[in-house]
Design a protein around this nucleic acid. Structure first.
Lengths: 342, 342
DNA sequence: CTGTTAGCGCATTCAG
DNA sequence: CTGAATGCGCTAACAG
């Protein structure tokens, strides 16, 4: 039982009384047509013997694997959701997606995963951000394997030609406008430096928003790392005019802020307003509900896969060489509902 | 650039002035030793030419892939965390882990993923639960590929010999005792039927607990599906003596209960107490904090990988043929803190 | 120690 | 429409 010699086309051919070439033909379709009779015989034999095609042999022989490698910083929350969608889209396009996580943003693990995937001779690669840096990436990816980046800004074209980026910057920018419109008289961005470029985009957007829509109100930027949230809230409420508007890195951070506020009996949204990003389960189910930016996973996943297909030259897919910006959509909940309505 | 003919050992051999066998030897170590000089030459040549071993060819040739397939119902939260740990453990053991999600508990996708993995000739399989049913699974897995189940109860040994199961039942059982000890005078289990066996285990544990520790208090079992949480809470508070103790399917469900309670101004833990499972980010960061059962991912992942290695016959790993039950540990927070303390 | 030789399982010309 | 032959890139005995 430990390895019952998997059956090969040779045996199927013998059982069906035809040559291995014929078996290969009927089992892969597409190419040459065979007579009804042989098809039946072959399929029957394959069925009975429990034939299962050996991917390695097939891949080796035609130097094409129909496999796409995906490298993400992690697999929880946003990343997990994205991976699931990508897997579906890949399948719809006739490919398989192998998912790898490089634990946080660890360049070494990332390099290792990349290496594994390239040794597998995957047809293409989809990576989220990339901890490794340009040069390092270039040297390893110059194998000619198409690479599409998700949430990778400003990458040299010879490495990743275009990327599928979420409009975090714009979302954060609009958040500031929204908070000001809702009456906020001071703004904060609570970020998460650990997430590198992702955080940078948000920060930039926040700054741009402040400059454009709220140049007259106080604002500050802090990071959750080593942040005592309760102390921070107290301090902010004391130093600035209320209500205070906070743009949180994501719904997780938003939840922490919300909980601290509840504990301190801070009135939301009259004293404090919060906007998160991701439109998680959390945002929907906390109390009060957290206004958040929803991510169009389907669209994002489709865009990424299409870009790859385009690179493969499969069809005239819509994926071009340009960066694609995927816009988020705002879902408003009680954490920012207009003052009067509440 | 679209496929610059990857370099093979043949070219490396030529460049280094040795035979391909020698190249194969020095590049894979382990086997035969070579002279320092040739090692240097070969490694240099490989380095310069940018040689990268072709996994398919290697796998084909030795009929061993060093790949493990993982099939999960999804990739978010618990599953994502588990996948990450498994990936690390697999790597430590010299294997690669390819992660596949079968979107919810869809038997068709599951079958497809299984098929893909088997065609890849993975050395082993790790599956979480399994939507497919015994017979169906048996017929497809009888290829002799070792399969270890995570959270799969009561499977026939010829399919999956033993499993690594989380002690959900025991956790729920102890939860009832705990709630009673904390003064609760009625108990509820709020489950999630969509999660099949996982929910069943919890339910069983809850029932066992009620019977053993709380046979004198009222209890009920409901399901989140189509449940109006606020109405449910109101009704329960009205019908039973307080405090009410709730065992939630997981921290997500617990959060929903908590939020509804907050909204209704129900006093936690004096009128209502809640225990979740998973010890998520949520449990830690909600207000009040949710008491929850922590999952020892490391232990679980190690156990699963060890079982597989044992099956491979690699080393005298500790994995036996028996089921392994992984105990959860209780983390208490404000949602159940003893009445007087609060 | 190093080189020669046979496959691994399948896809693909190219004749029949 | 079908079959015999060749090779994909690498490993695993054997010889030298």
């Amino acid at each position: 039982m430990s390895k019952p010699k998997q059956v090969t086309i040779v045996e199927v051919a013998a059982a069906a009384g035809v040559s291995i070439a014929t078996v290969s033909n009927v089992l892969n379709r597409g190419g040459i047509r065979s007579s009804k009779e042989t098809i039946r015989k072959v399929e029957l034999a394959a069925e009975q013997l429990g034939y299962r095609r050996n991917t390695m042999a097939a891949g080796l022989s035609r130097s094409k694997t129909y496999e796409i490698g995906l490298i993400l910083p992690g697999l929880t929350n946003y990343y997990g959701q994205l991976a699931e969608r990508l897997q579906i889209e890949a399948h719809n396009a006739g490919y398989h997606l192998s998912v790898f996580s490089s634990g946080g943003f660890d360049p070494d693990i990332e390099r290792r995963n990349l290496e594994v995937l390239l040794q597998r001779r995957v047809d293409g690669l989809i990576c989220h951000g990339l901890a490794m840096g340009f040069e390092s990436t270039r040297s390893i990816v110059n194998s000619g394997t198409p690479l599409v980046l998700i949430n990778g800004w400003n990458w040299p074209e010879d490495i990743a030609l275009g990327a599928v980026n979420l409009g975090f910057a714009e979302a954060c920018k609009q958040s500031t406008k929204l908070l000001v419109d809702r009456g906020c008289r001071a703004l904060c961005y609570v970020g998460s430096k650990g997430s590198k470029v992702i955080d940078e985009q948000r920060r930039n957007g926040f700054n741009a928003g402040v400059q454009q829509y709220a140049s007259d109100v106080k604002n500050e930027i802090v990071d959750t790392k080593d942040l005592d949230i309760e102390a921070f809230l107290k301090s902010v409420l004391q130093r600035h005019a209320m209500p205070i508007g906070i743009v949180a890195f994501d719904d997780h951070v938003a939840l922490r802020l919300l909980s601290a506020a509840n504990k301190l009996r801070i009135d939301i949204p009259n004293q404090l307003q919060i906007i998160g990003i991701n439109n998680d389960y959390i945002a929907k189910n906390s109390y009060p509900g957290i206004s958040s930016w929803d991510i169009p996973y389907n669209y994002q996943a489709q865009a990424a896969i299409n870009k790859l297909l385009h690179k493969f030259g499969n069809r005239a897919e819509s994926g071009e060489e340009r960066e694609i910006e995927v816009p988020l959509t705002f879902i408003e909940r009680e954490s920012t509902k207009p003052l009067k309505t509440e």
